[in-house]
Design a protein around this nucleic acid. Structure first.
Lengths: 353, 353
DNA sequence: GAGATCGTCTGCAACGTTGTACACGACGAA
DNA sequence: TTCGTCGTGTACAACGTTGCAGACGATCTC
């Protein structure tokens, strides 16, 4: 084998290398790469052969520098360890790949400081825009921002559309209504001694936190069924994990032994609560009915299968990407808010109607 | 408010803009940004103020073009919908963020063609290297490659270290031994009528597929306990999901009603199998003991909690990143293989010893 | 007091790519 | 024949950044 064939990984080939081999200008190579029509067929194939021979790939960095666009979008979510977010991320990646865009994933589990860094445009300018699910940062912070540093779409639950910074949009899930639907479902199935379990995750004042909105929905439903919302226990947990749900169930049963329905802030907590109820000898849904939130894949395989709220992730992701791309392409209008739909999925953890 | 303060998102500020305000050369601004020591204190603060005023952020594309490095690494895995991979991705992101690197996520659920595209360096040159968990592509394909297109570290289970392409490394999990450990555990607890459930995911000839290696371990353990490996049923499923595990359990019980132990290819299948066994009125671990593989978070909260094999993800991720960064920094040695450790986590789905 | 050394700062070139402008020959229409 | 048009290809400049070489004045050394 001639030594020239031993193509070691040195400097990657550039347009110039290809141009030299095909004996054309680099611009012609560029034209071929981009399917520019006015290239003679014979030239085109000669260039394509040279590209194949060198293994040439366009260098994104140079394209971005020249054209100002990279086709990269950043997705910033708290943590992929929550199946809600990992499923969301996958949906997002699929949708973005389908549109020819690449996804950079940034997780902000370290908290508020990291979220603020996202808003401040990170340390270096990288992609064309960001889709951001904030947890710690609330409206107060956003309201005070003059303008976002790059095209931004917020997703999530606990922002009010009134205070979005200029240059951003928002896809929300109507938490209050969704939780009201879940609660109403328990009430319609005859349960009366309900409790709510959720985490208080924001450091901003509470009313618009994710849990705050869900609690609001919980209380609205009780009120509409002529029950006193003030008397229904709200169990606050430290985090959204299964372990928290389990312990919350223990504490709730200790304080309210005759509990017969549990509305949980997410599926993980609900699944933990199932375990916690079992620990205390309660049957589900016989003694206590349970509803979750998210319709994570585990919900279907829980024992019993979990009744839950299913937000339309596909809708959410598509809407977010649509608006982000519009912003990237220069749209400068006022912030927009879109509400993604949801539905109640009834399974075995709530009694038959 | 003076109109100049209404900093609309136009062209992002560059070194030149900052330099003009601070009345220095752009090179000096660059020096300040990079903490170059020989800058007078007064100059430094003046520049820093100008940076703050403009909101300047270095533009990665230009840096990359100039220096040849981006600090971006790509992680290519099949799908974040498997909690094994989403947890792995999160571990990876944390570790990479800790080392000042950014992660691009690419998922290859579409199959072999997409995996080959990863190996071929994608359509555009983007990051500095890639960490790749192949599923469809096997050794035959890799063995025939002259050289990888960019620094590459494979992770996973079903490659043999003999055939890695030059320029790549490999962090493997010793599947065969791990599954043998899991199987031995069931045998030591007195079970004798065991079956294995797993998916056949590769299109390459089977022996070194992920399932193939696990089956090998399964059989080795049987052999060592004086049982005939040929008589133990192997239940093949289409995919690694819960639903597959459930159906597999149904089929297995139909064919082998006296089954008393189940070794599953991953936790999802095992969790599905738990549901399938319950469907058929079997108790776990009373009638049938079950072991999984991965120690996904759900395993702990299954009913009963799942005994499973826990691969050391932290180790895996660190080793992969170490080797990748060495390659990026110019290491040109022969392919290396590192084996990540694992342990058996005993929980309620297998009987007491 | 002359030369060497140090600290501070700057100008130039180049990384790989693409938009614009234009050159050149061939062909069609007047 | 002449002018305009079309198809094909090229030269040049610029995107924002950083390594290198060196300018310039101040300080040190003998």
């Amino acid at each position: 084998m001639p030594p020239s064939t031993r193509r070691a990984r040195r400097r990657p080939p550039t347009l110039r290398d290809v141009a030299e081999i095909a004996d054309v200008s680099i611009k012609t190579v560029s034209n071929v790469v981009h399917d520019y029509p006015h290239v003679r067929e014979s030239t085109r194939t000669r260039v394509q052969e040279a590209i194949a021979a060198t293994g040439y790939r366009p260098q994104l960095a140079a394209q971005q520098l020249r054209t100002g666009a990279s086709g990269i979008v950043t997705l910033a979510v708290p943590s992929l360890n929550f199946s809600y977010f990992s499923n969301l991320a996958q949906t997002f990646i699929d949708e973005a790949q389908g549109r020819g865009r690449t996804v950079v994933l940034h997780t902000t589990s370290a908290g508020r400081d990291e979220e603020i860094e996202v808003l401040r445009g990170f340390r270096r300018r990288l992609g064309d825009g960001v889709i951001f699910n904030p947890m710690q940062v609330g409206e107060d912070y956003l309201a005070q921002m003059e303008h976002v540093d790059q095209p931004t779409v917020f997703i999530g639950e606990h922002l009010s559309d009134a205070h979005l910074p200029p240059g951003s949009d928002y896809v929300r899930i109507d938490n209050t209504r969704a939780t009201a639907d879940a609660t109403a479902h328990l009430l319609e199935r005859g349960r009366r001694r309900l409790a709510f379990v959720g985490a208080m995750e924001t450091t901003d004042p509470a009313p618009h936190s994710s849990s705050g909105l869900r609690i609001e929905g919980f209380r609205q439903a009780l009120w509409r069924h002529d029950l006193d919302p003030a008397r229904a226990p709200i169990e606050e947990v430290a985090d959204w994990h299964r372990a928290d749900g389990r312990e919350a169930a223990h504490r709730l049963l200790d304080a309210h032994p005759h509990l017969d329905g549990l509305v949980c802030g997410n599926d993980e907590i609900a699944l933990g609560a199932l375990a916690g109820l079992r620990d205390r000898g309660r049957t589900v849904p016989g003694d206590v009915a349970v509803v979750g939130y998210d319709d994570s894949p585990e919900a279907l395989f829980a024992h019993p299968p979990l009744t839950t709220i299913r937000p339309d992730k596909q809708f959410l992701v598509k809407a977010a990407l649509d608006m982000l791309i519009e912003r990237i392409n220069g749209y400068e209008g006022a912030p927009r808010t879109i509400t993604a739909p949801h539905e109640l999925v009834v399974r075995g953890s709530t009694p038959e109607g």
